[in-house]
């Protein structure tokens, strides 16, 4: 078991091209931690969605910005913290998506946050306006069996 190891971090340029690198970084760490294939896929997608939101909304596609991703593989939980210095995001503004409302709209939003909440056990946002935003994504080790029963 890899539990209890210290954090692993990566900085990536805030560009959609970076998403493939992000997925590879998370895949490697989640696999090493011992998650099932389903859980690995869920964590990868949740982190992709969080980074996509930062690239699109926090940094509004400014390519010279950076995103920092830190992974904390704990004894009972695998936690990913994602930091940016862009516009703060208020998750309370996001409602569960009504797909029928989305149909036909070229402008999309809210689907990623909804997916993150469905895929992870816990999603938290912390921000100091104008300074730093943090998204915490947590997956519990024991949850792999609970998820299979859903």
């Amino acid at each position: 078991m890899e539990a209890g190891k210290k954090k692993i971090s990566k900085r990536i340029p805030s560009r959609t091209e970076s998403l493939a690198d992000v997925r590879e970084f998370i895949d490697h760490a989640a696999r090493k931690y011992g998650f099932s294939e389903d859980d690995i896929a869920s964590i990868i997608l949740a982190v992709d969605e969080a980074c996509t939101n930062i690239i699109k909304h926090a940094y509004q596609y400014a390519a010279d910005k950076e995103i920092e991703i830190s992974i904390f593989p704990g004894t009972r939980s695998f936690e990913i913290r994602i930091y940016d210095n862009g516009n703060s995001f208020d998750p309370s503004q996001i409602r569960p998506p009504d797909l029928k409302e989305h149909l036909g709209h070229k402008r999309r939003g809210g689907l990623g946050v909804y997916l993150m909440k469905r895929l992870m056990d816990k999603v938290e946002y912390n921000y100091i306006p104008g300074k730093r935003n943090e998204v915490r994504l947590i997956k519990y080790r024991m949850d792999s069996t609970a998820q299979a029963r859903r």
Binding site: L45, G104, H105, R108, G112, L115
Partner: peptide, 17 residues
């Protein structure tokens, strides 16, 4: 191999037209 909400959004944007 993989789809995120950005991809799903494209299906939703065009199906109505």
């Amino acid at each position: 191999s993989y789809i995120s909400s950005a991809g799903l959004g494209v299906f939703m944007a065009y199906v109505e037209d």
